[in-house]
Amino acid sequence: MSGGTHLENANPVIFQRTGERLQTATEEDEDFHDPIDDREIFDMIRSINDPEHPLSLEELNVVEQIRVKVNDAESIVGIEFTPTIPHCSMATLIGLSIKVKLLRSLPNRFKIDVHITPGTHASEDAVNKQLADKERVAAALENSSLLEVVNQCLSTKSS
C-alpha cells in the first residue's frame, strides 16, 4: 500500500454487504436437523478479504450467493467466483483462499469444487485446472509465502 505501488484496479465497483442471516424458530429447536444450505456456505466465504483492497470478496462481488451450490445429502459443494477484471492476476490466489476456507470449515465428507464463472477471466481454464488439482493445491500450501498470503485473506479483521 505504499506510495510507489499501483493497484491493478484502483477504483473497483463496490457492492452492498448482505445482512446477518436471520435466525428462524427451527434453528433454535434442539430436535430439528438444519441442512447445510447455500447461504451457510456463502456466509463462510463472503467475509474473505481481498488480497489487494481492504474490502471483502462480497463487497467486490467476487462471490455471490447465487453462484454457490451445495447438496448436503450428496456432500457436494460447487462455487463460481468472478474476478473484478478479466486480467486479474490475483484470480488463482482468490480461488485458493476460497478453497482453503472451505476445507477448514466443512466436514471432510464434502467434495469441494471451486472455479471461475465461465467467461469472466482471460486464463479461465488454466486457473480452474490448478484449483481442481489436489496435488497442486497441497503443494501450494506447503509454500510458506503463499500460505502467508492465504492466511491473511482468511484472518478476521481485528476490531
Binding site: 436437523h33 438444519d34 456466509d43 470449515s105
Partner: peptide, 14 residues
C-alpha cells in the same frame, strides 16, 4: 445437526 453450532465451530476452527 444445528446450524448455530456449526457456525461457532467454523469460527473457532478458522
Amino acid at each position: 445437526k444445528k446450524r448455530l453450532v456449526r457456525t461457532e465451530a467454523v469460527r473457532a476452527r478458522g
